[in-house]
Amino acid sequence: MSLISRELACVRGHRTLFEKLDFTLAPGYVLLVEGDNGSGKTSLLKMLAGLRAPDHGDILWNGTSIRTLGADYRSQLLWLGHANGLKEDLTAAENLRIAQALHARTDRKINQVLEMVRLRGYKHTRPRLFSAGMKRRLALARLLLQQAPLWILDEPQASLDVTGIAMLESFVHQHLADGGMAVMTSHHSVSLDDECLVRLRLTP
């Protein structure tokens, strides 16, 4: 299992954000994408998720281009974007049920996952009433609901408090220990083990 980027380039307007980007990500590793605002971190993540077509180069999953794989690739990845992707009018449990329906490779029960992000008591509460950090935790719960080898997380630490960040890091560690891999961006320092961290710095 591997995620390979080959001579990837991103152009927005007339500006080249990055080009000739090569990396290989293997199970057990996190690719930490660093860079200033506007350096193309989110664009890179969208490309890796297949939401955005690369302006040049290709992304390979197990040696095949993700464009050819299509749905087979999408079933291998879980995405957490800038926005949480939660419906404010649905309760926490209903939100997770939708996530289950969209992926359908469920391994854990909703109660179990809510327990893991410490929102068990809010099962029937709508995220409308949640704080920003609680919403983020509910979004993280979606990652735990199903088994997918590749996690793509855009600023997962955003609006999380210290315990929330520790929670996230333990989830990522467990995911790597289970043979998964992850790509994430972050503004904050990340206290993940250095041996499983691959840093990628985007410079204009």
Partner: peptide
Amino acid sequence: YDDGSLEQLVLSPRP
């Protein structure tokens, strides 16, 4: 689109 659920829909393995 605003709350990000659209990304989740597009990334679903379902057509």
